[in-house]
Amino acid sequence: MILLAIDCAASLCAASVYDADADRELGRSVRDLGKGHAEHLMAVIDEALGQAGKAYADLGRIAVSTGPGSFTGVRVAVSAARGFSLALKVPAVGVTTLEALARETRDALGPRRVFAVLDAGREEIHAGLYDETGAVLREPVVLSLTDAAAIAASGPIALVGTAARMVADAAATDKPFGFGPMLATADIGTYARIAAAKTPAERPKPVYLRAPDAKPQAGFVLPREEK
């Protein structure tokens, strides 16, 4: 099975073409954009397909990072994945940024519990807890720094994500922590490998743990003219 993975959850706009049967990446394209994912995503996908020597018709599955992360970036990637799934008549599989970061930590450090934590600003942490096999112990949730630190201090655990050091410093414990990548998203190849092993279920949905910062300016809405 040939799989296309895409990720726009953080500053990167990334695509990978992955041969699941051979467990081998065939092509990839990654751009560090910050913003503007919608304008670049199709070109990034085309670059990855071209490097792999594959066409859209060769794809048997779509993988997409579903967040938490950039509200706009996640929406762009998930919308694209669902569109490809519908047009190509292939399943789309969602992978959260937290489970992907946890997978990279286990790959680097060996089997262990992993607490994936992202700095969401406003003194909030986006967090997910995973066991030694990657099974979810705690679904993605918004925590205070105090609550996240308490979980980290509860037992042997590895920390990963942009808030990893912050949570470790706040944890009142002498127990040493293992650390994974202190990044906002995982390598695009990690999303591909996770999605290849999943059983497709419902269509992927964005993982939004809080409302978007941008809101309609209701005070500037013009009144409707009665006819």
Results as ranks from 00 to 15, higher is better:
1 M>E: 11
2 I>R: 12
2 I>C: 00
2 I>V: 11
5 A>V: 08
6 I>L: 15
6 I>N: 06
7 D>I: 12
8 C>G: 04
9 A>W: 09
10 A>W: 03
13 C>W: 10
14 A>Q: 05
17 V>S: 00
21 D>Q: 07
24 R>Y: 10
25 E>D: 12
26 L>G: 10
26 L>N: 07
28 R>C: 15
29 S>N: 14
31 R>G: 01
34 G>D: 07
34 G>N: 04
34 G>Q: 12
35 K>Q: 09
37 H>S: 06
40 H>Y: 04
41 L>M: 12
41 L>P: 07
41 L>T: 08
42 M>E: 02
42 M>G: 06
44 V>I: 14
48 A>K: 02
50 G>D: 12
51 Q>A: 09
52 A>H: 00
53 G>D: 01
54 K>R: 15
58 D>W: 11
59 L>G: 09
59 L>R: 09
60 G>P: 12
61 R>D: 08
63 A>Q: 12
66 T>M: 03
68 P>R: 13
70 S>H: 03
71 F>N: 05
72 T>M: 14
74 V>K: 05
75 R>F: 00
76 V>M: 06
77 A>Y: 08
77 A>K: 14
78 V>K: 10
80 A>C: 15
80 A>M: 14
80 A>L: 08
82 R>Y: 00
82 R>H: 05
82 R>L: 10
84 F>D: 06
86 L>R: 14
87 A>T: 09
88 L>A: 05
89 K>E: 12
90 V>S: 10
90 V>F: 12
90 V>T: 08
90 V>M: 09
91 P>A: 13
92 A>W: 09
99 E>R: 15
104 E>Q: 14
105 T>S: 06
106 R>A: 03
107 D>C: 03
109 L>C: 09
109 L>G: 01
112 R>L: 14
115 F>T: 09
120 A>E: 01
122 R>N: 09
123 E>M: 14
124 E>A: 13
125 I>D: 01
125 I>F: 07
128 G>W: 13
129 L>F: 14
131 D>C: 08
132 E>H: 02
132 E>R: 10
133 T>G: 11
133 T>K: 15
139 E>G: 02
141 V>E: 14
143 L>S: 01
145 L>S: 06
149 A>K: 04
150 A>W: 04
151 I>S: 05
156 P>R: 12
160 V>H: 00
164 A>L: 07
167 V>L: 06
167 V>K: 08
167 V>D: 04
170 A>V: 10
172 A>G: 03
173 T>N: 02
176 P>F: 11
176 P>E: 07
178 G>Y: 08
178 G>P: 13
179 F>L: 15
187 D>Q: 05
189 G>W: 06
189 G>F: 02
190 T>S: 10
191 Y>N: 02
191 Y>Q: 10
193 R>K: 13
194 I>E: 03
195 A>K: 04
195 A>R: 07
201 A>Q: 14
203 R>L: 07
205 K>R: 14
205 K>E: 11
206 P>I: 03
207 V>C: 06
211 A>W: 04
215 K>Q: 15
215 K>E: 15
216 P>V: 15
220 F>G: 00
221 V>C: 12
221 V>Y: 15
223 P>N: 10
224 R>D: 09
226 E>Y: 15
226 E>L: 15
226 E>F: 13
227 K>V: 10
227 K>F: 08
